[in-house]
Amino acid sequence: MQIMNELTRDIDEVALTLRHFIKEKIAGFKKKGAVIGVSGGVDSAVILALCVQELGAENVFGLLLPEKESAPSSTVLGEEICKSLGVEYEEVSISPILEALDIYNKKDHIIKRTCPEYDPNIHETALVLPDFLKTGAVNVPYLKLFKNGEEIAQHRLKASDYLEIIGLQGVKQRSRMIVQYMYAEKKNYIVCGATNKTELALGQLVKYGDGGVDIEPMADCYKTQVYALAKYLNVNEEIIKRAPSADTWSHYTSDQDFYWRMPIEIMDQLLYGKDHKLSLEMIEKNTGLARETIENALKHIERVEAATEYIRTAPPTCFINR
């Protein structure tokens, strides 16, 4: 069995299933269309294309929601895909919300006390985790400083600073959620999410941020399947080739550098192997990794899944009237 073949097969049927799901859920909620946050990345591009195919461009609204630290290419590519699909869109900067909450200054203070050499006028910053396959290291976050694109320093973040910075960064996705609902309610649309199965498993979403949506059509599609869908739907090659990123740091930080800690084709094959209870021998043949590395990586994934359960869980109810 070739896992990558399994992940990319029958993609036309997958697209059709997702389209039907979108239509059925919107009808069920008695809404008229979908608002989509368009990031310039492959996930939102695929969702946008599926929604347009199923609902018609006139019932889809795109929102470009950049902020001071977003890569300019995110807006350019987001705008391009909206235009190419004939989708009405608007650009709303979320920087004023972040400035009102003093997010940038608070973030700078943490960076400064972690990296004494930090100068916000000179350096770009990124939050990264060590590459798992190369180092086998546990999830220890580092702040990296870059000057003219070159890495010049890295410092380990203290637990309290890491927690604070995650909270500050989460305001970006949560601000986007607020803006999306402002438009969705005005239009009587739903907010359609673009989280995929790989992200969901690894807790790679912000609760009530990018996870704050009405439907998640792709939450059972591995990232590899999203790429296959993107090709099938003729998504702009530049979007497909672009390194996926939450795009919340001034130095463009890929998901591989923070969330996956290994190439996506390896991560997805490991996740698929784990989800489908494949033998170590089968995973070994598919990934080319040593058995010990696979065992360690699977343990690592299980730890991440357990630690991020809170993110995926809806507020539990204490039932007293049953």
């Binding site: 546990v138 999830n139 220890v140 976050p141 380990r156 973040l157 203290k158 637990a159 309290s160 890491y162 927690l163 343990k299 730890r303 991440v304 357990a306 630690a307």
Partner: peptide, 17 residues
């Protein structure tokens, strides 16, 4: 410590500090 549920990734960072 992780598999017995005593510490998670944040707990580990706090222990390192």
């Amino acid at each position: 410590l992780t598999q017995s549920g005593i510490i998670d990734s944040i707990g580990l960072l706090e222990l390192l500090d």
